[in-house]
């Protein structure tokens, strides 16, 4: 991979659900250390796009490159691709039968083949970083929603992924818990993570995004810096979407 090759390149991606196009020819690059925020109404294709990038959905056309590798080629090992990408879901999806530390060390031990001490050292370091170092032995249901989501982020980071996908990670949280999760994402950005995220938090998008991408009906309508999109949107659809949010 050359220095200025994008971490993620999406080229003409198409996805159909039956007769309905959910992604209708999406082109998108995410550069190294860049934070790209997807905005758009429910059903605009944000989540589907993230799922196709993580190979949880098969594209019906187009290609997706991760650091130059075509990951939509049916010959690639999907599990190996997924190991290079960290994902955080809306509903945390922590494993309830494992302690917080085991949640975070699972991929290291069973995908990357790390020894338990090595995985746990990495896991404890991450838990310290997210401010939950003292909860390592707890089970997820003993934690608040915000804490669980921070653990989910730590779990996604444990294998040092090249790209982090965040799918509406604050949508299921109480308003007073949203801040702690978004602060953590801000820290990840400062530390140089490459992030592609879907969100409804416009103020956060404005604060943390390098680039904001507006999707509607599976099409990329407009993209630009937060200032361009939020203060001077070029397209009528973007203006209408932002006006509705008021």
């Amino acid at each position: 991979m050359t220095a200025n090759e994008p971490v993620l390149r999406v080229e003409g991606v198409v996805k159909w659900y039956g007769e309905q196009p959910v992604l209708d020819g999406i082109d998108l690059d995410v550069a190294r250390h860049e934070v790209v925020v997807l905005i758009g109404a429910s059903g605009s294709g944000k989540s589907t796009l993230l799922k196709t990038v993580n190979l949880l959905e098969r594209v019906d056309d187009g290609q997706i490159f991760l650091a130059g590798d075509d990951i939509t080629d049916p010959r690639v090992n999907a599990d190996r691709v997924r190991a290079r990408i960290g994902v955080v879901f809306q509903h945390y999806n922590l494993f309830p039968h494992m302690s917080v530390l085991d949640n975070v060390t699972l991929a290291g031990r069973h995908v990357l083949g790390w020894s338990r001490p090595r995985a746990e050292a990495r896991g404890r370091e991450l838990l310290e970083r997210i401010g939950l170092g003292d909860r390592a032995a707890e089970y997820p249901d003993r934690l608040s929603g915000g804490q669980q989501q921070r653990v989910a982020i730590a779990r996604a980071l444990a294998t040092e992924p090249e790209l982090l996908l965040l799918d509406e990670i604050t949508s299921a949280l109480d308003p007073q818990l949203v801040g702690e999760v978004l602060d953590l994402v801000g820290e990840l950005k400062a530390a140089g993570s490459t992030i592609l995220m879907a969100t409804h938090e416009m103020s956060f998008a404005r604060r943390v995004a390098d680039r904001v991408v507006f999707l509607q009906n599976g099409r990329l309508v407009e993209q630009g810096t937060p200032e361009q999109i939020f203060d001077a949107p070029q397209h009528e659809e973007t203006r209408r979407f932002l006006a509705r949010l008021g």
């Binding site: 003409g12 198409v14 159909w16 007769e19 196009p21 019906d60 056309d61 187009g62 939509t72 049916p74």
Partner: peptide, 18 residues
């Protein structure tokens, strides 16, 4: 699924290969 849209959508060479 490519031909689902009343046939107006031609899959690209890449998709055909896949």
């Amino acid at each position: 699924r490519i031909t689902a849209g009343e046939g107006q959508r031609q899959p690209s060479a890449v998709e055909q290969g896949r």
